[in-house]
Write a protein that binds this DNA or RNA. Structure first.
Lengths: 187, 187
DNA sequence: CTGTACATGTAAGTAGTTACATGATTGG
DNA sequence: CCAATCATGTAACTACTTACATGTACAG
């Protein structure tokens, strides 16, 4: 892996438009933070790494009255790398955040099929997980405390809800793609 | 916080019975891992910390043919600390894993009311999150890419499913508590 | 004779946290 | 006068990862 998931995420954010570290942290706190909301200090660590690798460039903006700021934007190399990451489907579970939803979130930066492929992969992973947990539940010891079963149901409930979301998201993306080819306005 | 969430989690696992690091990693991989499944090396780091603090004791078991093992068990101090943690309700979101489900999972180590209080707190946190995201969705820019809305729906779907689980878990725990006071066999 | 299970651990790295340092402007 | 907003960053820490080191026994 050339960049880490965290680095790709920050790259995706600055690829959407020139941003400062402060901007990213603020918009993560309110809004986009339903996916990923690291602290400011984490963001300030990642941004320079992107510049070093040539994935982003830094531009200093002098301000009077308020502190100067440093704006970051993706370079052509950065945009290419981002697109490659979005299109690449991980079948092996990566440590930390599952990248599927993240890649759907950044789906605007790649062809629509990429998002659909991510949803397919996500469904496969979730289905396998649900099946494993259902098997676990079936073989759960009779004298195991209720609490174990409750925690298991928690995982199952979330995984099943996520599967339903995958189906719905797929329908939405197909609808949008159809609308786009028939020449209507896309959103 | 005297111990961290990770430390309390491992403490809870060894409080259920004497275990080796290897045991914990294995049963996390299959079974209990629906909540928390760190790598072996992480577990091997945490266990000695518990011993140093007096929360667990280590017992070396010589084996012939296979490697010797070190079994860990919670001390009375450890069990007291665990119970205190389970009963304590965090209203401020802690970094990393949300402790609510974890505390329900370990609910057998404290009075039943503790688990019910954790569920209440979890519901409050989730409700607030859902309301915030619904507000975000309402004010979402018309020309924002679909992908943003999809990611938001992902979070909403999971949070709503989790809320439904909270209600169901509460009913289950109340039923069990009733059965217990009326003198029937508990599971 | 190869791989898997048993069993513990180190090394090096990323990901993330809070607390601290600095400093101007604006609004109550 | 105090707090919030703007703005970047360091220090010290926990959490977690993979890869590596070491060694026996048993099953195919």
């Amino acid at each position: 892996m050339e960049l880490t998931t965290t680095e790709y995420t920050v790259l995706g954010l600055v690829a959407a438009g020139e941003r400062s570290g402060y901007d990213l942290a603020r918009s993560a706190a309110r809004g986009a933070g339903f996916m990923w909301a690291p602290s400011r200090s984490q963001i300030y660590k990642v941004l320079p790494r992107l510049v070093e690798g040539g994935y982003a460039r830094r531009r200093e903006v002098r301000q009077s009255g308020r502190p100067d700021k440093e704006l970051y934007a993706a370079t052509p190399l950065g945009r290419r790398a981002l697109r490659g990451w979005i299109e690449r489907v991980d079948h092996e579970p990566t440590p930390g955040v599952a990248p599927y939803v993240l890649k759907v979130f950044f789906g605007w930066a790649a062809p629509p099929e990429a998002s659909l492929r991510q949803l397919d992969a996500y469904r496969a992973v979730l289905t396998q997980r649900v099946e494993g947990w259902e098997e676990t539940r079936r073989t759960l010891d009779r004298d195991e405390p209720v609490h174990s079963r409750l925690a298991l149901e928690h995982g199952l409930a979330r995984a099943r809800a996520t599967l339903a979301w995958v189906d719905e998201a797929e329908r939405t993306l197909r609808r949008v793609a159809r609308r786009r080819v028939s020449g209507l306005k896309s959103s």
